[in-house]
Each structure stands twice: as C-alpha cells, then as structure tokens.
C-alpha cells in the first residue's frame, strides 16, 4: 500500500530534527506602503502574526522606529515540515521629512497591518494664496 505523496509528509521527522537550530531570532524588515496627502503621510506596515502589545512604535529626531514580535504559531515541540515565513519579529526605521508634526501621530493595528498616520506640521500644509 502506498501513501499519497503530499506536502505535509515531504520530510521524515528525523531529518527535520537534524537541521541546525538557529539560536538568534530573525527580525526582518516589514513590507510597507506609504502614501502622501496634502495633510499627512500614511504608512501601512505589514506585521502578520504580531500581537498589539509587542509593538514598539516611537519617533525620535525625525525618525520613526517600529519593532514588533511575532507570536508563536505552534508549540515549541512541533516538527516543522515546511517553512516559508521565518520572521520572529519585525524591525525598521524610517527617516521622516522635517514637515511632520511629531506630536500628532495616530497608529492603528488591524488584520496584521499597522497603519500609522503622520500629520504634517501646520506651517507646511499647502494652502491657496489669494491675490489681492
């Protein structure tokens, strides 16, 4: 009797356990989309598997720091059969322009995407100039 060949059984358990175990955790750069409006910059940062409580988000000297940890997806003694997502966490720094109002930043996490809205400082918002 032959078993189905299938992705879930491509590796023998013993073979997987012999793969080197990395002690250091991998923090990767999260994919980020950015758009700009006359009033703000909006960043949408992919943080799949991240719990809100592990996110560190801070601005300092015109830089935006994002760091977050991915929660465990399975038990530590689980046998890994196939591994494509490898991030233990995410870490990235963005340099902001000098037109960001540092005191006016909004952040919201939904469906594993962190949306950060940075309002521009009053003085640089575009405005119409009336000609007398």
């Amino acid at each position: 009797m032959t078993s189905n060949s299938n992705e879930l059984k491509t590796r023998d358990a013993q073979e997987v356990r012999n793969l080197p175990v990395k002690a250091d955790r991998k923090f990767l750069l999260p994919a980020t989309d950015v758009y700009e409006t006359p009033e703000a910059y909006v960043l949408m940062i992919d943080l799949p598997g991240v719990e809100k409580g592990t996110i560190q988000l801070r601005v300092e000297n015109e830089e935006l720091f994002v760091r977050a940890e991915v929660g465990p997806l399975h038990r530590p003694d689980a046998v890994i059969l196939h591994r494509e997502h490898i991030a233990d966490g995410y870490d990235r720094v963005f340099s902001l322009g000098n037109d960001v109002d540092m005191t006016n930043i909004d952040a919201q996490l939904e469906n594993g995407v962190l949306t950060v809205k940075l309002l521009k400082s009053e003085k640089v918002k575009a405005r119409e100039i009336t000609i007398r």
């Binding site: 879930l8 598997g49 997806l73 003694d77 196939h82 591994r83 594993g112 995407v113």
Partner: peptide, 27 residues
C-alpha cells in the same frame, strides 16, 4: 523584499495530534 515563493508565505508543522498550516495574510 521579493519573496521567492508565491505569496502568501505558508508554514506546515506536525504537532503530533494534528497538522497545522499557517499562512501570512496581512490586510
């Protein structure tokens, strides 16, 4: 940032009593 596998990334593990497949589907 370019993933060599077709998005979304998937992991497969054997937890003994069950198999678990996880897929990254942000957004």
């Amino acid at each position: 940032f370019i993933s060599p596998v077709s998005a979304p990334a998937m992991n497969l593990v054997d937890e003994g009593r069950e198999f678990i497949a996880t897929l990254e589907l942000p957004g």
